[in-house]
Amino acid sequence: MTVKKRALMLVLPTVVVLALIVIFPLVFSLSVSVRAYDIRIPEHPFIGFGNWISLLKNPDFYSAVLVTGTMILAELFFELLLGLCVALLLLQLPRSRKIFQPILLIPMMVMPVVVGYMGRLVFEVRSGPINYFLNMLGLESLCWHASPDLALITILILRIWRWTPFVMAVLLAGLLSLPMEPYQSAQVDGANIWQIFIHITIPMLKPIITLVVIMRSLEILQTFDIMYVLTMGGPGAKTMTLSLYAYITGFRYWDIGQASAAAWLIMIPLSIMVTLFVKMMEKGEKIEQAK
């Protein structure tokens, strides 16, 4: 009993700290979202679901949902594809892998604000290197992040550049942990590389791919920094993601009530994904303990 109590004393401070810094803002933000909140006035009258309804009637909100959804699908597709290709290539180079892998992981360590700034630098219209390469190939210079058609693509290129290394590293770790036996027996049965890949590698990698998909979706759902630096959601609202939308509503237009409602609407898909993630981790832990 005393041991249990002592252990509880060890946990208590952390739980109290976390409850204070996490539950407080959740409850507070919910209460702000049902008020007409003007920070210049001390009174904040209760208006029920007014903020939520006007948010759900606002086409800008849906455009932000669409942009965020597009980003999730496009990033997942390209990051998994590129990440898997690079991981499979590295798998073929058991010795030089140790040199290549750490170098390839560097983009992931660049802070997102700097990634946005790098985008400004390399996609510069008049004398940026990317347009220079295009000109060398005989193509016209493009406006990249300033053009309505290409702004989202520019952001996606930058984000794929930063995050593919993460996907690659996790997939490679997964590939390296796969057991050898299924491969050997498939080879004995005379399966070709493609068949082995589709019928053995992919099914065995499935838990890790699911994990990557959830972790990446969670991050993309909250993405903010690169757009803030590079486009501020523009041109128009072509690169306005949900997080940026909530930020601009709250801290540019000072509509704090509606910003809280928007933040809560991000919380809903996010909590579903977090629950899934935690379930997967729990399962993994059980398997580990059973071993």
């Binding site: 996490v22 507070f28 709250g250």
Partner: peptide
């Protein structure tokens, strides 16, 4: 302590979205 529930609750907080916290923290 807290079985499996408490540590996993703490793990899930890792994904707490800053965008939800910025308004209340700014006001506080």
């Amino acid at each position: 302590v807290g079985g499996d529930t408490l540590p996993f609750w703490i793990l899930s907080l890792k994904f707490f979205p800053p965008v939800v916290a910025i308004v209340p923290y700014f006001l506080m």
